[in-house]
Amino acid sequence: MKISVILDEIAVMADSSGFDPISNVVKQEWLIHGPNPYSTAALEEAIRLREKYPDIQVSAYSLGGADAARVLTYAMAMGADDAFWIPAENIKFMDLWDRAFRLANAIQSRGNDLILCGRLSADENTEELGPFIADIIGVPFISDATKIDMVFAEQKGLVWRRLERGDRDVYEAKLPLLITVERGIRSPRYVSVRKQSLPWRITKIEESSSNKSSDLNVSPVTLIGSALPRPKPKKGAQIATALSAQDRLMMLMSGGSSQKKEGGLVEGKPGEVARRISEFFEEKGFY
């Protein structure tokens, strides 16, 4: 029984100072690189499944440059049985269908029963890589899993999919299957610096020339660049709030986010204050 886990490395910008809005450049020194927490949650789930059921082999896959090799080292240190590196340059500029194709090729040829990957690539804010891979390999997928209950003997399992407000949809699916997991599914184990520094064996996969991603016949999305765009005001009647116009625009763009925070103070009679808070909630669409 094989579980394949797809991992990626992400760059976290822990502070908004990492983006220069004048030159529209992401400052590299403000980026912290590390494994995507959604990927490590997926790997943790795979390792837990292995601890529960005998005869499971957990393989880690990653596509990319040195970052991919790093994340695979991390995966081995966490406890993956083997790691496969599909080298590629500049994957952040590569279309997701293309990336999915290369990963799918590598996984497919190694025979897999269960494929796990993170729900989201936290820096790129994309969630379609897993489903694309599932489609190329030809297996069904379930996204946003918060719980996986596998019965390997019967080649099937139950998957809990996260909905809004704590609700869950439960699906039953037969293997082979691809599941994208939520971050909260498992807290990935802590991997000591020593373990990360050990010389783990990582298998490099050279791309076969027979398969080409162009066979997929998909047209790519092109990354043009980064910018703080001029936001378009939200439709509908604007309700007066405590926020300044500029704060409001920033907030519209980011859907929140934690920089600005220089708005005025709301105070007054309880009824009046309550009205203004509820207006704020309504404007943000919280009910």
Binding site: A11, M13, S16, D123, N125, L223, G225, S226, P229, M253
Partner: peptide, 9 residues
């Protein structure tokens, strides 16, 4: 992108 700190086109 980048946890809503950057906007990409």
């Amino acid at each position: 992108t980048y946890e809503k700190k950057v906007f990409t086109r």
